[in-house]
Amino acid sequence: MVAVPAFVDGEAVRIPARLRYRLGGGDIKWFYQLYRWEFWLREQVQNDLERAGKETALPTFEGVPEARLTGL
């Protein structure tokens, strides 16, 4: 597991990671792959948005990706 905050000073998002290796030229190259990181990060952002709305009693809004705005 890798834990990183979605926002500065926010709660850490726990993202599953797979430890991988490759053999090449007699050396072992170690690396990791995050498993479904977009899902876990998005879930934390939604939780933070809901929490902010409850704590401030203000309406919350979510935008659309910039790519969808170019067709307007």
Rank of each mutant, 00 (worst) to 15 (best):
D48Y: 06
D27Q: 15
A52S: 06
Y21M: 11
F39R: 00
G25R: 13
E50Y: 09
D27Y: 13
K29A: 15
L23P: 01
Q44V: 01
L19A: 13
L23G: 12
K54V: 08
R42Q: 12
K29N: 14
L41F: 07
N47Y: 00
K29I: 14
Q33K: 03
G53A: 10
L34K: 03
L23I: 15
Q46C: 06
V45T: 05
R42F: 11
A52H: 07
L41C: 01
G25T: 08
I28W: 06
E50L: 09
R42A: 14
R36E: 15
Y21A: 10
A57L: 08
G26P: 08
I15Q: 06
T56M: 03
W40N: 04
V45Q: 03
R20W: 05
R18W: 13
A52M: 02
T56D: 03
G25F: 12
G53D: 09
E55S: 06
L19C: 13
R22H: 00
K54I: 10
R36L: 12
E38K: 13
G25P: 06
L19G: 11
P16C: 04
P16W: 06
A52N: 01
L34F: 04
D48T: 11
D27A: 15
A17W: 02
A17K: 09
G53K: 07
N47E: 14
R51G: 01
A17E: 08
L23V: 14
K54Y: 11
W40T: 04
E43D: 15
A17N: 02
G53F: 08
Y21K: 09
A52C: 04
R36V: 08
